[in-house]
Amino acid sequence: MVEKALGARNILLKSDSNLVIGQIKGEYEVKEDRMQKYLRLTNHLSQEFDRVDFTQVPKNQNSEVDEVARQALSEEGTMFEIPRTIISNNGHQFDSQDFRNFCSGLGIKNQFSSLGHPQANRQTEVTNQTLLKINKVRLEEAKGTWPEELPNVLWAYRTTARTPIGETPFRLTYGTEAVILVEVGVTSMKREVFQENSNEDQLKVNLDYLDEVREEASQKMAKY
C-alpha cells in the first residue's frame, strides 16, 4: 500500500457508498462471497496501521477516488482485483500459518521463490525497492494530488526496460511495446514501420511469440 510505504500510521478512508462503509463497520450484513473476501482483506490491511477510520462522504466530494478509478479503468480495462497468486520470498511473515490462512480465505495461491535460486529473491527485493523509491519521490512531492500522479509513476515503471530481463513489464504482460508520449513527436523505428492496416495482425503475431519472449527474459534474469 502507498500509505504504508510512505510511513503513514493513521489513515482516513473515504467512500461515497453508505452500504460499503456500513458493511466495514459491521452495521450491515455482508452476504455476497466476493464482498466477504474484500471485507476480510480490508480488515487484514487495517491491522498494518495504528488507526484506520472509515467515513462516508457525498459523491461530489469524492472526486479524488473517482479519478483513480477512472484512470484505472481507462488504462487497464478493469479495476484492480484480488490477485490469483502471490509470489514472495521465504520470510517468516509470508510463511506463517496466519498468512497462509489469509491467502486461502481469499482464494489466493501462496507461492515462494526457490531457496536454490537466490537470484529470484534478490530480483524481487530490487523491484520492490525501485517502486518504493519512485513512489516516495513523486508522491511526496505531489502531496494532495497523489491520485493524479500515481498512474504516471506506475506507467513509467511498466514502460521502462528492466536491466536484468532486457524487456519492459508492459511487453511481458501484453506481448507488445507501448508507444510512450516522447516517441510521438520524434522520428523512431516504431513510427516509421507502423502500418495501420496490418497493425491488428501484427499484434496477434506478437501474442503468439509472447511465451518465447517471457522464456528469454527468464533466462536473462537467471544469468544476471
Rank of each mutant, 00 (worst) to 15 (best):
L154S: 03
L139V: 09
L106P: 00
S96D: 05
M221C: 02
T187C: 07
Y38F: 15
L39G: 02
Q93T: 05
F99S: 03
S88Y: 04
L39D: 01
G7T: 07
A120P: 02
T168L: 01
M221W: 07
S46W: 12
E140S: 12
K220Q: 07
F170L: 01
E200H: 06
A178Q: 10
E149N: 04
I11W: 13
M79L: 15
D16M: 05
I180A: 02
V20Q: 04
T78N: 08
K109D: 15
L154C: 10
T130C: 09
K59G: 04
E215V: 03
V186N: 07
Q36H: 08
I134D: 07
I180P: 00
N101Y: 06
T168C: 00
N121G: 07
T173W: 14
R100G: 10
I108Y: 03
D98V: 11
I21Q: 04
E140W: 06
E148L: 14
Q202M: 11
G116K: 14
W155F: 03
E67S: 13
E67D: 05
N135V: 11
S46A: 05
R171G: 01
I165T: 15
T42W: 01
E212L: 13
L39N: 03
R122K: 11
D53S: 07
F80I: 14
N10S: 08
F99G: 06
Y224R: 02
K190F: 03
R122H: 08
T176D: 06
A142E: 06
K136T: 09
V2E: 04
S17A: 05
Q47D: 04
N135T: 11
A8Q: 12
R162E: 01
L41H: 10
N121C: 11
D16T: 00
M1N: 11
V186H: 08
Q195V: 02
T168F: 00
T168Q: 02
F170A: 00
Y157S: 00
L12F: 08
R51A: 11
G107T: 10
L45R: 13
H117K: 15
L19K: 14
T176E: 05
E64L: 09
E167C: 04
H44I: 00
K14Y: 10
Y38H: 14
T176N: 09
H117D: 11
H92K: 14
A178M: 09
E29M: 12
F54Y: 15
Y38G: 03
N121K: 14
L12K: 11
N101L: 12
L106Q: 06
S218G: 01
R158S: 01
R40K: 15
